[in-house]
Design a binder for these strands. Structure first.
Length: 290
DNA sequence: CACCAGGGTACCT
DNA sequence: AGGTACCATGGT
């Protein structure tokens, strides 16, 4: 078994924060870096002063799959420069300059966020670990960690039972994941077709799926597709926007939606991720109410 | 023990 | 359109 290594030069890429920022759930610390499984490949990443080093099995013809996943072509300074010029966004950027958005596989992203509802990130990671081990295809036995498995396909989950999925600790989310997996597996929904749609069309398709509401739809649009204005609003982001921008009187849901849709600019999704990270690290272990 | 977690759904006004 | 109970599970 042979490992292949490659160096990537990149500035302002906060690798650790990005991989643990609640977008993707399969990265775990390993040595001086991080490891995960992308598609059918085991991957290791380690930050260096000039960028980072990547290692993988199965010599790839090229590294485009990793460049795309890590979004190395994004000019993060231009993205940050597009944020609204207000003290709250400045503080969020200062808290972690270099936080990035990943570009994930649509099915893995969709399934992962169906499992995310009212769960803490560590628990989502645990559920997905069980799901992959029990339903995903094992990687090549010559891999670095022969027990690692790919994220299960929609067809693999569609072939499971609700009780079997509940055995992965996902509770009431099991019937949602099962029903959505069946719709994807039988072709009732084509996740690839969403790439050519407007954000509104793509969101409408996602909202048809069981267990997918506005928040999860926005997560998939932002983390798996190319919709930079998608803006997932979870409890942390809602708290951030309300406390920072509406300190006196809490806004009506309609007012809040209108503000979010207009205030954060063409890269609103990045702004959201900075606010999420800022809020979560500032108030870590201090309790939700601060 | 009470409360919370990258929510969605059914059902109420 | 806006509000609420309920849905499992594990952590604090």
């Amino acid at each position: 078994m042979e490992l292949v290594a490659e160096f990537f030069a990149v500035k302002n890429y906060a690798l650790a924060e990005t991989l643990q920022s609640g977008q993707a759930f399969r990265w775990k610390p390993s040595g001086a870096g991080w490891e995960s499984v992308l598609q059918k490949r085991w991957v290791y990443l380690e930050q260096t002063p000039e960028g980072f080093e990547a290692r993988t099995t199965h010599p790839p013809e090229d590294w485009d799959w990793l460049r795309n996943y890590l979004q190395l072509g994004v000019d993060i300074d231009a993205v940050i420069a597009s944020f609204p010029d207000d003290p709250h966004m400045k503080a969020a950027v200062e808290a972690c300059r270099g936080l990035r958005l990943l570009r994930q596989d649509p099915w893995e992203c969709l399934a992962s966020f169906i499992l995310s509802s009212t769960k803490q990130i560590v628990q989502i990671q645990q559920i997905i670990r069980l799901l992959c081990a029990r339903y995903g295809s094992p990687l090549d036995p010559s891999a670095v960690h022969p027990h690692d498995a790919a994220f299960p396909t929609a067809a693999q989950i569609a072939g499971a039972t609700e009780d079997g999925l509940r055995g992965c600790k996902m509770g009431f989310r099991a019937p949602y994941l099962l029903a959505t997996a069946r719709r994807v597996a039988d072709g009732a929904v084509d996740l690839e077709a969403l790439r050519g749609m407007t954000m509104e069309e793509a969101e409408a398709r996602l909202l048809e799926l069981p267990g997918v509401g506005e928040k999860i739809a926005q997560c998939v649009l932002l983390f798996a597709y190319d919709f930079p204005r998608a803006f997932p609003v979870d409890v942390w982001v809602r708290r951030a926007v309300v406390e920072l921008y509406f300190p006196r009187r809490r806004p009506s849901p309609a007012r809040l939606r209108r503000f979010i849709a207009t205030h954060f600019g063409p890269h609103a999704g990045y702004a959201q991720q900075y606010l999420f990270h800022y809020m979560r690290t500032q108030t870590a272990r201090r309790g939700p109410r601060g």
